[in-house]
Design a protein around this nucleic acid. Structure first.
Lengths: 211, 211
DNA sequence: GTGGCGATGTATCGGGCCGATACATCGTGC
DNA sequence: GCACGATGTATCGGCCCGATACATCGCCAC
């Protein structure tokens, strides 16, 4: 999961770890508060070993290095194999694509995903949430007298969140089918154009079988 | 976190692993979909080593063992030290008490928690969510032109969820202060009585043995 | 009657991710 | 000159997950 996110961010521009962590935090927002360094650095090492990313130590080619560069920050950049790996991860949608973290990361890179995959993921996520919702309704209907008031309140709040997310997903799916991008949310002034910076830069990029 | 949940459930009645997992799933609902066995069994072993829980192998004292009991299910029961440990975990509220999983588990056992601790946890959680909310507003205000339409939609959805949870917490806090138990939700027909089975089994005295 | 099959049940293993911790350097203020 | 907070890299122990491998029970079909 983190692998996908790192590859995606490094595709935009090379970065060092600290910067990567901050970008990750703003890009993923709620989904994944802030990645731990205890996760980030080992993952970077793993990606480097696999050949997806490369090291470009202190690549200040524009201005004169403002620091003595004794043993400075390590700048990582994505390799050609890394780009392939990224595309592969983007296109595939397993069960882990539909849990909270996995879905969030995939969604954050939807502007680089083709429409068919977007729809597949949105529908998979919806199904997942609908199952969760049914489970909660089951519990509230069947076992409500066996649980205390606080537990019940927790279930109710969870059920509410599920119903809300399903509606959100429905709306996104409808938009996808009709060819509109999101950002046409009802309660936003939306000063930015709906097709912002990179709405669809890959017309039909997914390699393997279209399916 | 799991430790608290297991101790709490075993306080209600002895159980074996499989049963524990199912109870955990219904009790925690959204918070923690279903605990993995790869987590559960090592945790049980850990709790047993620590002396918080004990083994009561195949304790079918009521009816004749319906199975040959070759090497049957292992029933776990909480020990006296385990009960103390549970009370200790219930009362303390660190930073990990306010993240999604931690808060959910604590909340699920609020009927065993004294009012002061409940308020402390609810307010800590509210603060945590408010910080998350402010972070999202910051991003939406400052970096909205730097992010694509999908990422923005993700942030907006996250912000919405934060605002909703803060309102929910406000309501719970108000109820706590005025001495009411929850379950008087506004948007529910609420066929069950608001003071269901165990709304407040501890009037004021916190931990130690309740019964 | 036996053979498959899904539910019940216990257990391990590799690996991802986290929090805590330890460093080292830079810019700034005093 | 030096303390201090921001920036920056890195490791360690530990929780938790998914995958996997078992073994048993009740039941139905053939």
């Amino acid at each position: 999961m983190l692998e996908l996110a790192i590859l995606g961010l490094l595709q935009e521009s090379p970065m060092h770890g600290y910067e990567l962590r901050k970008e990750l935090a703003t890009k993923l927002g709620t989904i994944r508060a802030a990645i731990s360094y205890g996760t980030l650095y080992p993952t970077l090492k793993r990606l480097q070993t696999a050949g997806w990313i490369g090291e470009a130590e202190s690549a200040d080619s524009e201005i004169i290095p403002p620091l003595t560069s004794k043993r400075g920050r390590v700048v990582y950049k994505i390799t050609a194999e890394g780009k392939e790996r990224f595309a592969e991860l983007l296109a595939q949608a397993g069960p882990e694509t539909y849990d909270d973290a996995g879905f969030g990361v995939h969604f954050a890179f939807f502007s680089r995903t083709d429409r068919a995959t977007r729809l597949r993921i949105l529908e998979g996520r919806r199904r997942r949430i609908e199952e969760r919702r049914e489970g909660l309704r089951e519990v509230l209907a069947r076992a409500s007298d066996r649980l205390d008031a606080y537990t019940l309140e927790l279930q109710r709040h969870g059920l509410d969140a599920c119903e809300r997310e399903v509606r959100w997903l429905e709306e996104l799916i409808t938009n996808e089918r009709s060819g509109k991008s999101p950002a046409t949310a009802t309660n936003l002034k939306t000063g930015t154009s709906p097709a912002g910076e990179t709405p669809l830069e890959h017309p039909g990029p997914h390699q393997d079988r279209p399916q």
